[in-house]
Structures are given as structure tokens and as C-alpha cells.
Design a protein around this nucleic acid. Structure first.
Lengths: 211, 211
DNA sequence: CAGTGAAATCTACGCCGTAGGTTTAAGAAG
DNA sequence: CTTCTTAAACCTACGGCGTAGATTTCACTG
């Protein structure tokens, strides 16, 4: 199990590397992730990776893309109600996030240009348009929805249950409401907040339809 | 301008270090930020910094805290309408984000436990409660609002105008709506999306009040 | 004027990303 | 069957990083 010989194939390719990278980040976290550790995991020289992905940034893109691609599996086909589409997409996204909590900051931080991501957006926006929502609203909705999803999931996944219990005398209202945050990160909380965002979008549609 | 002598004070303290760090990230970006570069900037040995902030993580916390603290300046006093409070807070937050676009990922990524951040939340939640909103809604609102703010601003600030114009044949609806995204990142867009989120919260309040 | 403690520097270690060069094996051309 | 080409992998080396630990110096305090 020492070293590989020089000219022999190690069976590396983008997909295999990305999969190993995702597993590594899942296990050790983003901070500890690096080209050398990944190479170790693959039983390969660090520089070999550079023949398939040039640079660490490309590696991070590949990780993000691979994780996003997992959404495809759970994608139901052709429900025409735009709210159903939005809810479905949101839940798929949340599930992926919970499956890879330590990868998620990458998703929220880096622009998503992969086909899978764009297809999801296209699907959502198409459903909204077909439902007769104003173009302005359909155009805005993805930013509103994924803005919320990214920010919320970031907070839930990175924050854990939260820091050191809030100071009741300095922040009385927050302290009083603390018990209500017992379900922090739960599916129920997610559904409530998602409902709020979606009804906000519905509202905009109603308001802009009258003019 | 060579080296300092060993025992003499360099006038370092948390605040001075944090200020220099913010300036450095503003200038060079998060990737290029590091203890050694910061020390150079301060005309000081790298290890000197460790007497005031132990470790790079603490340094990043200090940066985040210092930037958040800028919100205080713009905080208007005691408007009692919760929506005004929410809007005011959101706009202050946005302005800070635009003033320090390269720092912002830190704000969105790290838990905010600083007094300034907690005070802003307390202020908002108190206004909602005083307006008679259900506790459930008041407790949920910060997550909904700041989730959206973090995710949206992250996308706007990191993404720039966006990648390489979308493929019109693969994603026809997105392409059709592209012209409407001309104001990407504008104050107008921000106001529209913020309106949506706030009316979503209002909606939840109405729905839960009737029970 | 000795003693103490804090603030700063110095040294050194192990790790990182990656540029550039070298080796090998496999497939194409003759 | 030989030679050429090429791609995949490895090796070496460099500069930079975060930080543990030891050391120096100054400002106070008694």
C-alpha cells in the first residue's frame, strides 16, 4: 500500500474525485479539507488531481456541483401548481443541506451555474408563469426563495442550537420568546418560515396583478 | 521603518487590530487575508497579534463584530411600528453589507452573538410583540428576515452581475425573464423582495391570530 | 532599586497550494 | 514488431501559512 508506479492509471476522473471530496468534507469539515488530504484518501499523489481539476477553487466548485446534483433524484415530475413546485424544491434543497451540513456553506457562498441548479430554477419559474403570475414576480421569486433558503439553512446548520443562552436582563423579549425556539432547525419550523416566504410572494403577485 | 524593538508598546489592542483587519479584507479580500499580512499592515510581528486575539478564528470573529457594530450609528430611535423597525434594520444591514462586500460572507456564515446584533434583534422582536403579534410569529420573524437578508445579500455581493448569460434554448423561461433582472442588486429590487418577506410575516400573524 | 508581569519579538515546525519537470504505460502509425 | 505520441501519474521544490514556545524589554509597583 506504499506508492503507485508512475505511468499506471489510477482510475481518476472528475466524478470520482468529486465524490471523494464530498465524503472528506462530510467527515472532516471544510477547514481540514485540502488537496493533499484528498489525495491521501484517493491513494494518489496530490498533483495527480490537477490533471482533472485545475486548482483548489475548481475542486470546491466540483464539490458544490456534486452535492447539488443529489437534488435531481428527489425531483418529482410536473406538478403544475407553482406553490407545490416551490415547496418541493425547497424541501429537496433542505434535505440535501441536512445530508451534507459541512458542505452547505459552499452552496450558499458560491454562484450556482450547474445545469441541475438552473433546471430547478427554470422549472419553478415556468410554473409561476404558467399560473399567470406577473413576470416581475416570477423573476423576483427565485432570489427571494433561495435567498431565504440559503440564509436560513446556513444559520441552522452552522449555528447549532445556538451560543450561550441569552442574557434575560439585557434582552428580556428575546428571553421570553426563547422557549418557542425549542424546535430550532426542525421540519416544523422550516415549514412555517417557508409558508411565510411563499405567502409573501403570493401577496406580491396579487398586488402587482391589480396593476 | 525596519523592526520594532522588543519590549516597547506598539499600541495594539482589539479595536485597532480589528479595524486594520477590516480594512485589509476590504482591500484584498478574504482569501488573501492572514495573520502575517495583517501584522505587516500594522507594522508589527505576527505573533504580537496573538496577545490580543488568540487564533485566526478569533480574528475573523472580531472582523465580523466590528462591521456589525457600524449598524449602530444608523439606528434610529424608537419607531413603534414593527414594520418600520424591520425595514430600518434591513436597510442598515444592507448598507453595511455594501460598504464591506468582501467581509459580508463572514457575517452570513458565523453566528452573531455580539451585543449590537442581539440588541437589534431585541428591538425588532419587542416592537412586534408590542404591536400584538402572536409570540410564535415574533419568535420566527428574525430567522425569516435575517435568513433572507443573509442569503440574498450573499448572492448579490458574491455573484456580481452573474455568470455567463443563460442558455436561451435550454432555459427559455429564465431567458425570457432575463431583461427583468437588469436591476440586480439595486435598492429597488431589495425593496421589492423585502416587501415580500415582510408581507409574508404579516400574513402569518393574521393567520395565527384568528388561530 | 529590585521584582514582577505584560507586551512584543524571535525561532522553528509542520502543513498547505501549486509551478515545473520527469517517468511510465498504452495506443496509433509505419 | 518497432517507433512515435500522448496523457496520466508522480517527484521535487518553493514560498507562504498558522501557531507553539522561548526570549527580550519596558513600565509599574513596592
Amino acid at each position: 500500500m506504499t506508492r503507485r508506479t508512475r505511468g499506471t492509471s489510477a482510475g481518476l476522473d472528475r466524478a470520482r474525485i468529486a465524490a471523494a471530496a464530498v465524503a472528506l468534507v462530510d467527515r472532516d469539515g471544510l477547514d481540514r479539507f485540502g488537496v493533499r488530504r484528498l489525495a491521501d484518501e484517493l491513494g494518489v499523489d496530490p498533483m495527480s488531481i490537477y490533471h482533472h481539476l485545475k486548482g483548489k477553487a475548481a475542486l470546491l466548485d466540483a464539490i458544490s456541483e456534486a452535492v447539488i446534483a443529489e437534488m435531481e433524484a428527489g425531483a418529482e415530475e410536473a406538478p403544475h401548481d407553482w406553490e407545490q413546485v416551490a415547496r418541493q424544491t425547497a424541501h429537496n434543497y433542505r434535505q440535501v443541506a441536512y445530508r451534507h451540513p459541512r458542505v452547505f456553506p459552499l452552496l450558499a457562498t458560491r454562484p450556482q451555474n450547474s445545469p441541475v441548479a438552473l433546471a430547478a430554477l427554470e422549472h419553478l419559474v415556468a410554473a409561476m408563469r404558467q399560473a399567470g403570475l406577473p413576470d416581475r414576480v416570477a423573476a423576483d421569486a427565485p432570489m427571494a426563495l433561495f435567498g431565504f433558503l440559503n440564509g436560513y439553512l446556513l444559520a441552522v446548520l452552522s449555528g447549532g442550537p445556538g451560543g450561550p443562552a441569552i442574557d434575560a436582563t439585557a434582552y428580556p423579549t428575546m428571553a421570553a420568546l426563547a422557549p418557542l425556539q425549542a424546535d430550532f432547525g426542525s421540519a416544523a419550523e422550516f415549514d412555517r418560515l417557508l409558508d411565510a416566504v411563499l405567502s409573501g410572494i403570493r401577496d406580491q403577485a396579487a398586488r402587482q396583478a391589480t396593476h
